[in-house]
Each structure stands twice: as C-alpha cells, then as structure tokens.
Design a protein around this nucleic acid. Structure first.
Lengths: 259, 259
DNA sequence: ACAAAAGTGTTTAATTTACACCCATGT
DNA sequence: ACATGGGTGTAAATTAAACACTTTTGT
C-alpha cells in the first residue's frame, strides 16, 4: 500500500485512466453536444477564458468504468441517471501532451505528466427538462451544435467525431433516438431527429410507414396546439412493445432508413 | 519524474492499463481461439499447471493502444503484422482480484495490487501458415475450439464472449472473414466459416448467390484435388474489387445472410 | 388568401426466401 | 455402386424506392 495515497486528497484516483462523455441533445432542429468550459485556475481568476472540453475526468480505483462515467458526468453537469454507452478507448501517448492543456493539467492533476488513456462514452438526453449546471472544475456548461464545436482540449474533437459515428451505427440497431425526445413527440420531430443524426434527408412517407410498422409507437389522444399549420398527432414510445419487437428480432437491425 | 521508474526493469510500463487479444482462427471445421498458458513461476518450476489466458499484458507509456496490442501479441506468440481491432474496454475494479490470479500477479508484476483496466482487441488469423510459438511468460500456446474454452484468468472468459459478439457484428459490415482463410479457398469453406462464426446454418444457394454478386471474389483456374467428391472451384478474395465495392456502398452493410 | 407542415397510397423494382436434383470424384 | 460434398435456378413473397396532392391551422 502506498502511504502517500492515503493522505492526499486524490486518494483512490487512478492517474492513468479517465472517462469522457459525448452527450448528445436535440432541440427539434439540430443535434447538439454538451461541453464544459474548464476553470484554468483558482476561482478568483476567471479572467482567462477556459478551454472547452468533454465532461470527463480520472476514474477512481474502486469504481467500474460505467460507474465512473456516470459519476463524472454528474459531478460536472448535474446530469444523473442517464443512458451511457461505452464506445471506444483512446490511448495515443501524446493525447495529453498538447501545450494548450499543460497549464490546466498542472493546476488540476496531482500527476500532470502521467500517461492517460480515456474510455469514451456517448449518451443521449432530452434537451427539454434537464438543465445542466456547471460544477466542480466546470466553469460553464453549454450545448453546441454538432457543426460548431470549437477547438477542444486534448483529443476531444476526435472523440466527438467518433462518438457521432458510433451514434449513427447504434441508431440502425436500436431505436435509441427516443432518449433524445420528450415523452410525447410528433412523427415529424422524430424524422428530423433521424435526419440530424444521419445527416441526410429522409422520405417522409417511407419513414412513417416503416416506423409505424415496427409497432413500438402508440398514438396519444392529443394533438399539437397553436401551430400555424395542421396540428400533428402526438405519439409516445412504448418500451413494452419495443421489448417484444426486440425478442422477435433477436439479431435484426432496426432499420427505418435506406442503407 | 519518478526516480524509481528509471532504474527498474519495468521502466515505462504503465501499471494500470493492459491490452488483451482475442485471436480467432478457423480450421475449415470450427472457430478457434488462441490462448496462452502462463508460467506461474520460474522456468524450473513447471510442475504446476499454469492458467490459460488471453495473450495480453500491460502497455508501455510511450506506445498507443493499437501498437501495444501488436507488440504484446508478438511477444507472447510470435504472431506479427496481423489485423487487430479494438472492441471494448473492461474495467471492473475486481477483475484482477480473483484468488486464482494472485500468485501470478505477484510473480510477474511490479505492482501486483494495482487496479488494471484492459482494452480488448480481436483479430483473425489464418490457422494454416502461422504457427504461434510460446514466448515470454507464455509457457504454451494453443488453439481452443470456441465451445471448449477452459476457465480462464481474470475476466478473460467474459472478454472472449464479447469478442465473439463483436466479430459477429463486424462480419455483417465487412467481409472480414477472408482473414481467416488461406489465399485460395472454396465457397463451401467460406460458407462453413460464416456458419461457424454466426453459429447457424445458411442456405447454400442463397449464400453463393449473394457472395458472388458482391463481385469481390475471383475464380482461379484451379480446382480441388484428391477429394472423394466433385472437386470444388478455388476462389481468392480480391482486395482491389472490395475497395471499389466499399466506395460504392459507403454505409451499406455487407450482408450475405438473412438478418 | 396564404404559408407551413401534416397526413396519406400506389406502382415499380429489387431483394429475400424456400426449395430439389444432378455432377464429379475417391473408395 | 455408393457416399460425399459441389454446383445450379425459379417462383412467390416481401421490402424498398420514388413520387404529389389534400388537409388543417394561424396570421
């Protein structure tokens, strides 16, 4: 047992392994990513603009990777109990060697020169309802359109890229998109979500046909109100029915789009 | 800089991160996995049976994860320059806490109690041609049928399971199976490979139809010899043509089986 | 009246599926 | 002659793709 470890504030923190979360949100128009702005020094010193980064941090030695991802995300943004899925480990030896990150590492980390590999998670949250709050070393939290992500810390731009690819892949296999929408939604909103994630237009009639045929949506007896056009039917996702669909289609893909 | 690190034999070895390789092979009958048998003590002491494990080890601080996977595999089995793909990180805090692994850890590792997360890779090699040789702490190397994998070290049984699932998933997206066959092969052999990986029978005529339609196989002017049945046509995989197929089908799946 | 998005079906093409017999060879 | 796997085609069912107009509401 390392005596040092017991007395320092960072006891139990593993210096070599971190988790990072690519959190996607959808505002009915475009796909967004949740980023935090780091504090680059003591609280008083907010003159310097902090660098934007993915919410992430070193793991503890007594927690699993999944647990760490949930904990770190909560600590930095206040988001709790949300769907998180591991998608890739990043371990380039120079991923934490950028000059732009040196100061923050020295300020925050007990071992600023440690080699750090990171395990990346992605997640989907309903933009409407959760309001992330900056905490810990996050000075700010904000949603960025996926096309307007700034230059991020470390290799986080690469991680965002890969996260989007992972999301696109998963979307073909499971109707995961519902995590991004409120309980009730219209088919138009659902289609725009798919288009935002896949980054291409879909045929309206074919999309509706296929989606409804899965028999995992139930129509509510409620319609849009106050919209300057024909009000749309509201639907909700039926978890029960989806579980049945999944059982009957054990290794089928959830395809609602042409490949 | 840690002075200790410079003088020890393990200088540059990261105590917290390892890589493990799930290497698949195919002998025209069933799918196999390459395992190593660990030396549990000094070379003289070979009376004790070593535990079987996936080829894997701690990474170095100056290499990427991909590089580490290739290096470690080479060090333990002699296999070089083979296709390796990362598929999942495993980070349960008690994954290296099994009693059965304690002795080996104390014998091999400078920090036997360190928390270790591992990044798992899978790979496909031609059983015929490569002959893996035990080296380093591998006392033995052997191919095990995927259904007869013994109780392995650490969480390696779980990793093998996940690796097979990853392989099945990837096989739908890319015609990766050719890595498991010699340069020339028959359509029957190819089909048996798919059946071994997917663990279900496929329709012969439909399989051939779909596979040939991809236009990535070329028939050689050579047939089987000495077989007690109609000799089969030999084919080879055409990388060039596959590259073309991939370009034309940017995000299509390589489906040769019903989903 | 106009703008804006909702909602709706059909036709054609492509793909998937199920299925059975003859062929060439070694023993 | 017989056992063994190689090789081949078609018909029916399903799914995918392309495509345009009417409806309902707010302003």
């Amino acid at each position: 047992m390392d005596q040092k470890a017991k007395t320092l504030p960072n006891a139990g923190i593993n210096p070599n392994v971190s988790v990072d979360c690519v959190i996607f949100g959808f505002d009915f128009e475009e796909l967004k990513v949740l980023l935090i702005q780091r504090k680059e020094g003591p609280d008083q010193d907010l003159a310097r603009e902090g660098r934007w980064a993915l919410p992430g941090n070193l793991i503890r030695d007594d927690e699993s990777l999944d647990t760490a991802a949930g904990r770190v995300l909560g600590e930095l943004t206040g988001l709790e109990r949300i769907y998180l899925q591991q998608f890739q480990a990043f371990g380039n030896p120079d991923r934490v060697r950028r000059q732009a990150d040196a100061e923050w590492l020295h300020y925050m980390r007990e071992q600023p020169n440690a080699r750090v590999i990171t395990v990346a998670y992605f997640s989907l949250v309903k933009l409407h309802g959760f309001e992330p709050q900056p905490r810990s070393f996050a000075r700010n939290v904000a949603w960025f359109p996926i096309d307007e992500v700034p230059d991020l810390a470390f290799d986080h731009n690469e991680i965002v890229e890969s996260g989007l690819l992972a999301l696109q892949r998963i979307l073909r296999q499971r109707p995961i998109g519902f995590e991004l929408l409120p309980r009730k939604f219209t088919l138009g909103q659902l289609q725009r979500l798919y288009e935002a994630i896949l980054r291409r237009p879909l045929d309206k009639r074919n999309f509706r046909k296929k989606m409804l045929k899965k028999d995992i949506l139930v129509a509510l007896d409620e319609k849009q109100q106050g919209v300057p056009h024909k009000p749309a039917q509201y639907y909700r996702f039926d978890k029960q029915k989806y579980a049945e669909w999944e059982e009957k289609n054990l290794d089928a893909d959830f395809d609602v789009v042409p490949v």
